[in-house]
Amino acid sequence: MNRVRTSVLALASVAVLGSAACGGGGSGQNVALGVNVAGNKMTPDKLSARQDDMVTLKVTADKAETIHLHGYDYKFEMKPGETQTKTFKADKTGSFEVEIEDTSTHLGELDIQPR
């Protein structure tokens, strides 16, 4: 009886959790994201793309400062009024903070959703 109980529970658990694992797939797309940093605010402050997308991130700032994208660890050394662009493959999934490096000022996040 114990083995039957254990087997039933194990199968039930696997079935339930396994059903949530279905779905996803598909290949990445080209995604262009543009942000404008004015003072301590970034517009828009929430960016998103999906895993394996080729993301082109264009950053414009009103001051000479370093804008840091965590996780991917890209730093944009900005001059006032300048625009800088970086293209990269979104191979890491998660929520990646964007901040002003020198003052650790949080600006927003880039969310990369899994496929």
Binding site: L9, A12, S13, V16, L17, S19, A20, G23, H70, G71, T93, G94, S95, F96, D111, Q113
Partner: peptide, 21 residues
């Protein structure tokens, strides 16, 4: 942190699993 919130479908399935189990 680098976490994304649990996806809605996973949240619902897990919650249901918790109750059923």
């Amino acid at each position: 942190r680098y976490d994304l919130p649990l996806s809605l479908s996973l949240y619902i399935v897990t919650a249901a699993a918790v109750v059923v189990i």
